[in-house]
Design a binder for these strands. Sequence first.
DNA 1: CGAACGACTGAAAACGTTTACAGCCCGTGT
DNA 2: ACACGGGCTGTAAACGTTTTCAGTCGTTCG
Lengths: 353, 353
Amino acid sequence: MPRRKTTSRMSDRPTMRDVARRSGTSVAAVSRVLNGGVVSDAYRDRIEAAIRDLGYRRNDMARGLVTGRSGLIGVALPDLVGPLYAQMARGVEDVLETRGMHAMVVSDQRDPNAERDAIELLRGRQVDALILIGTRLGDAELRDAAGDVPVVLVQADRPDGERPQVRLDDAAGMRAAFAHLHALGHRRIAHLSGARRDGAERRAAFEACAAEAGLEVAPVVPGDSTEAGGERAAEEVARHLATAVACANDRSAVGLIHGLRARGLRVPDDVSVVGYDDLDWTRYLSPPLTTVRQPGRWMGREAARLALADPDASERSHVRVAPELIVRGSTRAPASAPATASTPPSTPPGPIP
Amino acid sequence: MPRRKTTSRMSDRPTMRDVARRSGTSVAAVSRVLNGGVVSDAYRDRIEAAIRDLGYRRNDMARGLVTGRSGLIGVALPDLVGPLYAQMARGVEDVLETRGMHAMVVSDQRDPNAERDAIELLRGRQVDALILIGTRLGDAELRDAAGDVPVVLVQADRPDGERPQVRLDDAAGMRAAFAHLHALGHRRIAHLSGARRDGAERRAAFEACAAEAGLEVAPVVPGDSTEAGGERAAEEVARHLATAVACANDRSAVGLIHGLRARGLRVPDDVSVVGYDDLDWTRYLSPPLTTVRQPGRWMGREAARLALADPDASERSHVRVAPELIVRGSTRAPASAPATASTPPSTPPGPIP
DNA sequence: CGAACGACTGAAAACGTTTACAGCCCGTGT
DNA sequence: ACACGGGCTGTAAACGTTTTCAGTCGTTCG
């Protein structure tokens, strides 16, 4: 039996044609009802009724084909499971939602080649803009992969001056952590570094702070961004007799605390530890972790705003987000040199007796 | 200046027409090269060269429009930020990736109305199937919202016998937790219940276990799924003099431990606590949490497999995933009645010095 | 009273693909 | 020599929308 040509093949989903026929009008009228064009009330009623009766839903692919836009923003991130990235994605959704748009999220599993594929995929779907989180692609590769689609970079590996982008002010975060420790009276402060990925700036800031404060002992002990790496680092931290450690991230801070404990060192009694990231569960550790909060959701929001902004508008397109120090239980004054002052939020240099 | 009609308007992205012209062939030939049809080698070479030169990318919207399929599986989940859901999403991606398909993930923020919208959106994008994680929609609502798109349910609130679905065997998980506690020698075991959402089955299983074991004291103390709820529950747990608590989820278990500690009760010395979920950080608590692991990623994989399966194939479409008990440091034998036997499942009896 | 105007309406042309179909060319079997 | 078949190729018709443009019809102004 030949298919009736009056109805579409894909599972007989009704089309605007069907709606038009049932309501005795035309597809143009239906389109106008759907998109808020001008239609008489009588028409509108009849068409809306037909839409309900038929259970009609618009086919966004066809729509996108003719309008040349998809209402989609592509988000490529290294990993859906990392809480920070997920929060960013959510931030993006927050603002898209208010514009009737949506995010298409794909994770590239930290593989630079997969990242290119992800962008490819997103472009095929005609996304209206791309938000690249933690991209490893350089300027040229990016131009090549993204073509003419507007791109917003979030925490890019190699910042590209030209493109809109949002970055965490990692230096400021590390300065806050260091200042907190210093104000508590610590003078032997170590840094547990992270993966090159986002650890470089934090490490540089730490070294700058240490130099500025004139610390004689400020070892940088290498870690990756894992608990295991932190645990391994405990040995070296202990060897340096550091009384405080500013870590490049929470995960290695947690590992470090375990390693320290395994060596009979207590936190914060013997060693103070401050993390970086504020993974949402670190407050439930004992002691609760003092750490630097990365406002992931907010960064996602900013990124979305940039992606939606008119590229010609002369708005500033580089957003630098300031992290916030969250003081909890893993830091205190060293036994040897008691605290002199509590740390005010952003740490003007406290008086030293 | 009128636009040349030979080129498309949207940012002058090249089309198959352009490729055909440049290579002196036809769009059909180009399409065949792209989709692995039959073409002579000479043609293939010329066309591939043109594709490279022009930087042509296929427009998946146009393609989807004619083929009636999108290569997309829609995933609706309550919240991207919850680690379990994110893991499920990742599991889905795992298997789609191998089929050259992709997931379109939208989070409905736990709101049943937003969930309907999400499904609507996904349908508009012509997803080839829908994976609904933790849906609250009932059978009828679902039929209405999803129409003829194949649907796979994951951890649905109200299981719908007809549709393919994957569920965690919550009863088995709770039985494992209970058995572990009981084998350690605990006889006053409490249950900290969770939100109705996914707590009902766990609670029922607990009560069944308690009855079967003939426990005289087995209070169920109400909690929600938050740390705060767990903390509040500590009071009542203490009042019942329970020596062990099987919780409906990790978050409230963590809160409970805090609350217990605030009352001077130590874990596991005075009270053993087992969680449920195995959030990936609970191993870093002190003590590390004994808990029941939900294999989120694996569930996601199963769901994707079901979504891709031929609906007519007489495969079994109900998958029940068994959780695994992870024994760590938050449980031990009660002081009053030392352990009689170790728990068979995952704890080989370690030598006791 | 005629004409111009305004508010609505519908036909039809895109949009960039896939695919059925018909055509071409060349080699082969009879 | 002719028919036939097979391997490639191009034309054109969908797919379901949006949008332009030319109407239609009543109303209002001059």
